[in-house]
Write a protein that binds this DNA or RNA. Sequence first.
DNA 1: AACATAGTTCCAAATAATGGAACCTGAACA
DNA 2: TGTTCAGGTTCCATTATTTGGAACTATGTT
Lengths: 264, 264
Amino acid sequence: MSGDGTVGKAMDVLDQVASFGRPVRFATLLSVSPYPKATLYRFLQTLTRQRLLEYDPDQQTYAVGLRLVRLAHAAWSQSSLAPLARDHLDRLSAQIGLTVHLAQLDNGQVLYVDKRNAAQPVDMFSQAGKVGPAYCTGVGKAMLAFLQEDEQARLLTQQSYHAFTAHTLATPAALKAELDAIAARGHAYDREEHEPGIICIAVPILTDAGRVLGGLSITGATQMTEMAALEALVPQLKATARDIADDGAAWRFPGQEPLQQTGT
Amino acid sequence: MSGDGTVGKAMDVLDQVASFGRPVRFATLLSVSPYPKATLYRFLQTLTRQRLLEYDPDQQTYAVGLRLVRLAHAAWSQSSLAPLARDHLDRLSAQIGLTVHLAQLDNGQVLYVDKRNAAQPVDMFSQAGKVGPAYCTGVGKAMLAFLQEDEQARLLTQQSYHAFTAHTLATPAALKAELDAIAARGHAYDREEHEPGIICIAVPILTDAGRVLGGLSITGATQMTEMAALEALVPQLKATARDIADDGAAWRFPGQEPLQQTGT
DNA sequence: AACATAGTTCCAAATAATGGAACCTGAACA
DNA sequence: TGTTCAGGTTCCATTATTTGGAACTATGTT
């Protein structure tokens, strides 16, 4: 799959285990793995020793290890927009009282990095860390629309184009037309393209130079909300995106680098 | 450090980057890395290609990559107690109105996997995924106290024993005595041992067989809460721990394994 | 223009990964 | 009790990857 070096292969195995979404046995993994028995076995050993996987001796199953949660904490707090955007999301959420998502692009997919849910307390990881398709979500399309031509084209080819609902834009051509419209308009809609009954409105978070940092969306259910009502919130949404981007530009990591260490 | 195979070395590098807590430049990493320039360089390349790291060309810095957030989502939802404990935490939190933590042991440290904060909406990752010392936190001691002798002894040697406050038990001997008391009593205290002004009361989450699954704690500030008040909540805390353990035993992953795939 | 500093590429030697086959180990069956 | 079998684990000569010193390039500095 990725095929670069031993590390790449080990990561493939790790992804494989993760993709099951539950603990798996050796034989099950072997049956879907491109690697021979001994090789797969050694990978699992190594990953387990590294605590990237966890092995349950009773059940003889492998599951994704907790070391990843620690690393993810680091990733989330230093590479994601979430810490930066936090206060802004709180404010927006309080103002409008609807569900708000903050997302970033990861390998052509939408990665949700934070969320505000007006009703109940936050879902934690069960939402942050979740991935979704880029071609049929509001945030996904909003981000894709503002990428540079070549990057956009590259990502368009690697979408999976599954028609989740009758409204899903399931071809590259249809999507491209939509993206151009979004770029002109400045914000994206999701008209039940991913889940029936769910609509949303989304904007990109852009640097001054126009680089896509992430996306921000407001979600509603068709039962309770009209698209027109969401549309009315676009100014607030845009203002929040602007604020986040400005903070990002101003902040660019406090203190930057410390004095160089010259010694060993 | 870990030293097994290429994967182990790559993980060392990844940890190194993560430990900075902010984007770092090549030279900075080189100065603290045991690897020579070319080797470190290639590791960074590989990790970046794998999106375990992210490289910012403008600043020429490396930071922990978002792919980890995705993997962590998988880890959190399949290897942690959090999804299982969710409803129980909600209930406990609603009943008592104080901060509740759910933690597990990871490599001799406390890894917080979930949290309920009565006052404000949850802190997300900024709390879940965070690690803390085991020897001077309520949950940490509660978990250590109920480990098997040999495992406990092993972990006692690898604590770092920093005296955070005047109350910290900063020697293995003092800690061991405390753990025995906790094991006899059934719950643990944190009397400002980690942070001044912060006290808590904690219990382990145990299987029927007595294996430690995790820990559960209630935290208060000395300004607002007396230890006696926390003590009064022990029955509810224990009941919740019991409920979580029972759920864990009953559940043991739904459906377990599907039919075996025989083909390629 | 000369110099330094930071980052990148090369390549022969050293090391680690590979995978076929043999070997365990416990469970089901006769 | 002996036999078979599938799921796991170990061995080891072959093969491929990693290693790291040194040479090189790019970028900014005096």
